[in-house]
Design a protein around this nucleic acid. Structure first.
Lengths: 140, 140
DNA sequence: CTGTATCCTTAGGGATACTG
DNA sequence: CAGTATCCCTAAGGATACAG
């Protein structure tokens, strides 16, 4: 039983960050969301090379937070299939924006083209307005 | 001189996460972006209560990553003004999506009223726009 | 191959004293 | 008040052995 955790504040950014703000959770979500990974061993094979104890811990925490769920693989009863819940899928806009920012700010980064579907022009238009306001406030 | 850091992979999500994936950096960006904070002491006053040594460290790292910049406050030569660079402002979509997800997934969370102080726009009007835009972006 | 458990090191971070 | 420095502890994480 995982200890009940008290968040540091009522800020939604802080809440999101406390759930996903470690070095690994977001990458597991990424692998589920975009790379179609489902099994334990597949997560171990990511470029960032998560170690097995950390992977087990994060899968447990993500399941506890109800971002992912696991079911037994009918084809192989000794393994689980991990998948995103709808709450986990709802993280997609965050991931998309992280991809976008990363690509724009590090030439070395790259990602398969199919990752970038879903950017919505309405949102972009709104963002431009908002960015203009903040830029002005910061004298940029 | 900060040691040159090698990222674990070429994934843009990993890159973004390595820069912002600690418990404090994102909150400093938040305070600059939405709460209009500019001075050292203001950051110390956030609900999450960052300690002074961590704050100094993160301000240094964020400046090194060129997400923020600091200039001497002409009105008080013993203090600095911290502000977002355009690279920092470009993080806004990520923060907005984090706010949206946090609000949708934790009833306790709410947007702090002081969030809009730095924006030169009417608070209520801004919130309505924000809600409408985010909802629309999510097909709601 | 799918996980768990253990050991051990390091980085993150809290408290607080201190300097200008 | 702005920022630095020090002390110390805990949590995060890496390596790897182990069990089904």
């Amino acid at each position: 039983m995982r200890k009940k955790y008290k968040y540091r504040s009522n800020c939604p950014i802080n809440f999101t960050q406390e759930i996903l703000g470690d070095k690994w959770s977001m990458l597991i979500i990424r692998d589920l969301m975009f790379a179609g990974k489902r099994h334990y061993g597949e997560f171990l094979k990511s470029d960032e090379k998560i170690s097995t104890n950390i992977l087990a811990d994060r899968l447990g925490k993500l399941e506890h937070s109800e971002l992912i769920s696991k079911t037994i693989d009918k084809n192989n009863l000794s393994k689980n299939i991990y998948s995103l819940t709808s709450k986990g899928i709802d993280l997609m806009p965050i991931l998309i924006e992280m991809i976008s920012w990363g690509l724009n700010n590090n030439d070395k980064t790259m990602v398969p083209p199919e990752f970038l579907k879903g950017l919505q022009t309405d949102k972009i238009k709104f963002m431009k307005e908002l960015k203009r306001a903040v830029s002005k406030a910061h004298g940029v």
